[in-house]
Design a protein around this nucleic acid. Sequence first.
RNA 1: GACCCCGUAGCUCAGUUGGAUAGAGCACCAGCCUCCUAAGUUGGGGGUCGCGAGUUCGAAUCUCGUCGGGGUCGCCA
Length: 674
Amino acid sequence: MYSRIYDSIKNQLQEILKDKHDITTELVWSKPHSSNLGDLSFPLFNVAKETSLTPQDIGKELIENFPMMSIIDRSELKGGFLNLFINQNEFAKIILSEIISLDKYGKSNLKEKKRIIVEHTSANPISPLHIGNIRNSILGDVIGRLYRFLGAKVNFRYYVNDLGRQIAPVIIGYFLLNNDGIKPDTKIDIWIGKIYALMNTFLEIYQIKSEFESLSLIPDIESSSYELSEAEIEYYQAKLDTSSVDQQQKERMLKQLLKLLRVQNSLKEKLSELYLQLKNLLVLNVEDLDDLANKYLVGYLAGEDKEMVDKFRKVTQNTLSGHTETLNLYNIYHDDFDWESEVSWGGEVGKILAQLDKKEFLRHDGQALLLENDKIASQLGFKEKYNINYEIPDLILVNSEGIALYPCRDIAYHLHKLEKFNANYCINVIGKDQQLAQLSVRTALYGLGEHEKADKILHYDYEIVTLVGGRMAGREFEYVTCDELFIMAKNEIETILENRDYSTEIKEDIAKKVSISSIRYSILKIDSQKIVTFDAKKAVDPNENTGPFLQYSYARALNILQKAPKKGIDADSIIQSVKQINFDIRKEIEWKMISLMEELPFVLKRALTQLKPDTVANYAFSLASVFHKFYDACPVLLAKDKDSLDTRIAIVYSFTKCLESLFEVMGIDTLEKM
RNA sequence: GACCCCGUAGCUCAGUUGGAUAGAGCACCAGCCUCCUAAGUUGGGGGUCGCGAGUUCGAAUCUCGUCGGGGUCGCCA
């Protein structure tokens, strides 16, 4: 609960206590549950304890001494609490005048803007965005929007992870199809996502078969290297049983076989035509997919083979164009894209490793290099600073083949990321499972002597989104894409719109905006630390979602203001001269509206300092909910007299201003009608 | 074994520096459009806040322990 007015009352009371008793205990106030306990309430127990007086005595003293302000009607002592009853009309005048006079209520316009980088989405650039990715995007987007609304200059960055091992097979598959004249039959990123799922499965099948081959287990069954049959599985299973392979490996291989069979069959069913085309092309053109994929990746990593670079870029750029299209549909925009490959080509990684090694922060194990997190953190004050009192595990930076892994490039990237935008802070929206990797980026920067930079980096972590059946797996084509989700939501909304008397264009606009708000809100409202189990039916049901509820409250409010002239009411001039209004609050729900609207700026500030965008969503819901109740209980245009009419018009208009601010932060579109 | 997160109504979740009688939505039951858009609203039932201690005038909230679920912890990104 937040209130500037209540805070100032608190401060006055605090002054009295300081004068009389030299008290250090901080007074706190809260809004009582029931209106007959007043509008704000101070528990006096702690103060009583420090003065060794009773709460009653302290209360009496406070009542006797504080200057009666016009904002307070009366006071009451009850059960150790000092309860104050507010002059609600006075309060309304102050707050509503303020809301109405401001361009955007709750917005900060600082002259010297903080510069903030928000890195978000950074999805696998070989498959379309799915519901798991969009949680990242929406959280990142809203955090950035919050910063911007509260006066920061925000730079949205997308880090393109284009050096993953899983990418090379996709490139191979993409160009096999392309050269064979097979064209994409869907949106490009979805097309590439299909190739990814197929190629990855073909590769894994190839690999497990090679593994059996190396054990001299070769079934006498006609088959390709890229396909598994039931008969082969039976053969492998039987042979494994009698082989000398150790138990653990047996189990692993068997498990992998069964998984691959399941995935293969499911892909065969889902992507039947493409499955066959790609498999046949592989059989014809590629003898050893594993080897070829490695050659591709090595070629791209070096960055010198122009043709190879073009191939990788073509595919990943295509995917990204699909991502961008989807993100824009969801009201999400990036300013810059950073390529992991460019970090690699920059040659920074080698220097960083050398430097860390020189300072003896790397542990060698054969060719492998491990970052000694705990050593760095203990020696350089990192643990004290971040209050870590356990042993931080090492992180592997270079594998035993001497290949630098992802975290190396992440360290190099962060070394320059802040400079690229001259940022005060950098927020990385990255899943919770990356906790150690993200922590290691900062310890590594400490190890390099870049304390200041490390301290500017914040890992904003969030929990995964799971499907009802299990995790989402891009490799298995097991996901609901954001595009699909949007269509599903839109269809639901369109059935509601059927009996509305709007033009097709307007219906289309409403359906789009409501769908997006519905999805955005449903993700936003959940605490980032909670695992979301995604249920498509619920996600798409307008009755379950609050996005439409918010937009509807806005449309209703606007409708009142628009209808006013027809009833001979000049709403505009009432609003213009809000300071002249003789406020007359008659119902508790009117007071609730006003008291809740006062909290908005504080809700936003707190959401930012705590990085909890869900609190904005939940506040918006409370406000809209109170408005709907107000709407039913308090007819505005039929108000019985001028004072009541003016009061209610001011409330309705202020409410629209509140929602406009909240919508801007949440990335939800306003609608004039629904 | 170490560390991080979660556990509140049948389901999904709020619950703010510890405050008075723990709240919504969905689902279920019963109402409200001659009145600003019923994507709304009114009422009802439904709770051992995982469990156990501790601190406190006061604990869903803080501390410790414990149970259950998820995640991370040397060769994925």
